[in-house]
Design a binder for these strands. Structure first.
Length: 489
RNA sequence: GCCGCGUUCGUCUAGGGGUCUAGGACGCCGCCCUCUCACGGCGGUAACACGGGUUCAAAUCCCGUACGCGGUACCA
């Protein structure tokens, strides 16, 4: 049984890259009939943000990724917050200590910084706390048993470090990259237990993945360099490592990390929350994210979540970093929108429309969606159609210049008169009336239709003129035509 | 610096020794449709990082170089 996990740190709003990691895990779980676990990795008390867990939950739910086991869902492998599992880490550490795979160290942050600086200055390849340097430091390997006990009894700050044996090669199979190898001489004696008693990511991750029966670890490529530490830990604890799959990183459109800073500058949202607030459809975000680093090997581009579950495979995940493209996301969003019924678009557009125009009828919203759905990129764009939800208060300057001629006021006024006489007021009748008017006045059709569009909508772009007129409604149309004829000369 | 990973159109990518005069999608440009703007349809632009091998044959395999990215924390 496949068991995968998404294991974010509650340090802020969920990052879009985090959602992709969650998505790939979810897809593998669903495809194999496995279990999707959510585990909150809250071991860093200094960066902990209380609201973050809720944002993670909300974001996953928004994207449609349902969690099988997690802090709010429960499950047999709980608890699902690392801060609630400290006894297990302690137990593992004791075992590592007893077996000589780990040791206690007393060095202060300053002493370690000094070590690094010195190694750097002396031009060594490795700069950290490792087999090459631990003999010079203050730890259970250099102190005698009595001294260690004495310092422990005195309550001195200390950490527990993994004892990495030099001269070995750690190999593991990565599902997307193939075999990856690291020399242990380049692997530092990683801290496993911090001086505050909390585990580091490395320890907690290995202990929990084992305890929760995780079979496949799908995570970002930034973890690849620390995977040898994890493999060493599994070995030391006598456990079988899971399968690893390291995802290519999502990069900024200008290259480099898609950080908060670079994204802000480029106007790209970084948090899932921001995508939601910007009016993106979750289906579009999911579809777009799925294609950032994966492809189905066919030419199909539009996928529902269920179709992705069907088509997904770890083998087809790519190896190189993928630059984020807002253009492509927008295109996906348009595709999703065109598949939605007007009623559904109306539901999604409502908050934005009401924020701008006040309360609106459901029927007005649906009518607007029906009229404009081919022309909007986001459901919330409906709110821009002022002429459907309020008054026409101004006219587009450039359009006015181009389309409003000397005879426009007269033609628009005359058209208003003819509509007043038109009891049907349908798409057909309003069009016939306009064609008749153009013929009677011996002017081109465009001479009438463009000024009428301007007068009734205030803008030059929009849906078919006659559908638009019918949607706006007869009385309002006539009133707007007359007012424009009077105001614009 | 050191370690690791990567490198096909501007971007996402297909392709994994001959079928590649390198395919698709986004973007961009043009045409068609048309009352505008879109949608849609059709067409166009544009890429195998570089250098050595291996081979009858290399975008595809090997080595090197360059470049990019990640890691190098008592952060994850």
């Amino acid at each position: 049984m496949t068991r995968v996990r998404f294991a974010p740190s509650p340090t802020g709003l969920l990052h879009i890259g985090g959602l992709r990691t969650a998505l790939y895990n979810y897809l593998l779980a669903r495809q194999t009939g496995g279990v999707f676990v959510l585990r909150i990795e809250d071991t860093d008390r200094t960066r902990f943000v209380p609201e973050a867990e809720k944002d993670i939950l909300d974001s996953l739910a928004w994207a449609g990724l349902t969690v099988d086991e997690g802090p709010t869902q429960g499950g047999d492998a709980g608890p699902y917050r690392q801060s609630e599992r400290t006894a297990r880490y302690r137990e593992a550490v004791d075992r590592l200590l007893d077996d000589g795979h780990a040791y206690i160290a007393f060095d202060t942050a300053e002493e370690i910084a000094e070590l690094r600086e010195r190694r750097q200055r002396e031009g060594h390849d490795s700069t950290g706390y490792s087999a090459a340097t631990r003999g010079e430091m203050t730890n259970a390997l250099t102190l005698d048993v009595g001294q260690v006990q004495q310092r422990l009894d005195a309550g001195d700050d200390h950490v527990v470090r993994l004892k990495v044996e030099p001269g070995q090669t750690v190999r593991f199979e990565d599902a997307v990259r193939g075999e990856v190898a690291f020399e242990t001489d380049t692997v530092d004696d990683q801290v496993l237990l911090k001086s505050d008693g909390m585990p580091t990511y490395h320890l907690a991750n290995v202990v929990d993945d084992h305890a929760m029966g995780i079979t496949d670890v799908i995570r970002g490529e930034e973890w690849l360099p620390s995977t040898p530490k994890h493999v060493l830990l599994y070995d030391a604890l006598g456990w079988k490592p899971p399968r690893f799959a390291h995802l290519p990183l999502i990069m900024s459109p200008t290259g480099g990390k898609l950080s908060k800073r670079s994204a802000d500058r480029l106007g790209i949202p970084v948090n899932v929350r921001q995508y939601r607030e910007a009016g993106y459809e979750p289906e579009a975000v999911v579809n777009f994210l799925a294609f950032l680093g994966w492809n189905p090997g066919t030419e199909q581009e539009g996928f529902t979540l269920d179709e992705l579950v069907e088509a997904f495979s770890v083998e087809r995940i790519g190896t190189s970093g993928a630059q984020f493209s807002l253009d492509k996301l927008n295109w996906f969003n348009g595709q999703v929108l065109r598949e939605l019924e007007p009623e559904e678009i109306a539901v999604r557009a409502r908050p934005e429309v009401e924020a701008k125009h006040g309360a609106v009828d459901a029927s007005a919203l649906v009518a607007a969606a029906t009229l404009l759905r081919e022309r909007i990129e986001k459901a919330s764009d409906l709110a821009d159609a002022d002429y459907l939800f309020g008054e026409v208060t101004s006219y587009d300057e450039t359009a006015l210049k181009k389309r409003w001629k000397d005879d426009s006021a007269r033609l628009v006024a005359t058209y208003a008169d003819r509509l007043e006489a038109d009891s049907e007021f349908t798409e057909a009748s309003t069009e016939v009336a306009m064609r008749q008017l153009a013929e009677d006045e011996e002017v081109g059709f465009g001479r009438v239709i463009h000024p009428v569009r301007l007068a009734t909508t205030g803008v030059s772009a929009g849906a078919g003129m006659f559908e638009t007129l019918v949607t706006i409604g007869r009385d309002t149309v006539i009133e707007r035509l007359r007012r424009a004829a009077a105001e614009l000369t």
